[in-house]
Amino acid sequence: MADMAAPHRALITAAAAELLLSLQERHGPLMFHQSGGCCDGSSPMCYPAGDFIVGDRDVLLAVLDVGAGVPVWISGPQFDTWKHTQLVIDVVPGRGGGFSLESPEGKRFLSRGRAFTEDENRELDDAPPVTGAAYERGERPPRTGTHVVADAGSVQDVCGIPQR
């Protein structure tokens, strides 16, 4: 795997990308911030770009190739816990978080996860993520392929939704 690009730290399902495009048409440029568990559990929160202040130590997981591009941020301390996990942003029926833009749509964004393999973790060690401070200085992650996947089931070993 040494000649390949590091795996994406964040992906988005086609259904979630479709909703994101619709929200971009209405609200303009958007961003995600992965919630840390307060108020909205661990949901990816969707905001108009700039409405959520990104801190110097926040980590950019990806710039999703949806519309004009949608950055996905996570707090630095939370990244330290999740750095071995690929985030897959999906959409499910239900009411989203109170501040997230999809809330009135009757759908909500949902984070699913997949543990990186040992080989992927080694590749990621060679590709440190961009922090908020570095982003502010103009640093951007390399563009390597699409972040859109057909559905969460197409990502091997991703966490599903528990059946009742």
Rank of each mutant, 00 (worst) to 15 (best):
M4A: 08
M4I: 07
M4V: 08
A5I: 02
P7T: 04
H8A: 12
H8W: 03
A10M: 07
A10K: 12
L11H: 06
I12H: 07
I12D: 01
T13V: 05
T13M: 09
T13A: 03
A15V: 00
A15D: 11
A15T: 04
A17V: 04
A17F: 01
A17S: 14
A17Q: 14
E18T: 11
E18Y: 02
E18P: 02
E18H: 00
L19E: 12
L19F: 04
L20N: 05
L21W: 01
L21C: 12
L21N: 12
L23C: 07
L23N: 00
E25D: 10
E25A: 15
H27M: 00
G28T: 10
G28R: 02
G28L: 00
L30P: 00
M31A: 03
M31W: 01
M31K: 03
F32Y: 07
F32S: 09
F32M: 02
Q34H: 14
S35K: 01
G36L: 00
G36M: 02
C38R: 10
C38I: 06
C39L: 06
D40I: 00
S42A: 09
S43W: 04
P44E: 08
M45C: 07
Y47R: 04
Y47N: 06
Y47C: 04
P48I: 00
D51F: 04
D51P: 00
V54M: 02
V54R: 03
D56L: 01
D58P: 10
D58V: 08
V59K: 14
L60R: 14
L60K: 05
L61K: 15
L61V: 03
L61D: 06
A62S: 10
V63E: 09
D65F: 05
D65T: 01
G69K: 01
G69R: 05
G69L: 00
V70K: 07
P71V: 04
P71M: 06
V72G: 04
I74R: 15
I74F: 15
S75T: 13
S75M: 07
G76P: 03
G76R: 14
G76A: 10
F79M: 05
T81D: 08
T81E: 09
W82F: 12
W82Q: 09
W82R: 14
W82V: 06
K83N: 13
T85V: 08
T85N: 11
T85G: 11
T85K: 14
T85Q: 13
Q86D: 01
Q86P: 01
Q86W: 06
Q86L: 05
L87P: 01
V88E: 05
I89K: 03
D90P: 09
V92G: 06
P93V: 13
P93L: 13
G94Y: 15
R95K: 15
G96T: 08
G96D: 08
G97K: 11
F99C: 08
S100G: 07
S100F: 09
L101K: 10
L101H: 05
E102F: 01
E102N: 06
P104N: 10
E105M: 13
E105S: 14
G106F: 00
K107Q: 13
K107T: 09
R108H: 10
R108Y: 05
L110M: 15
R112C: 08
G113V: 04
G113N: 08
G113Q: 08
G113M: 07
R114D: 07
R114C: 10
T117I: 13
T117L: 04
T117N: 09
D119K: 12
N121H: 05
N121C: 12
E123M: 15
E123W: 13
L124M: 03
A127M: 07
P129H: 06
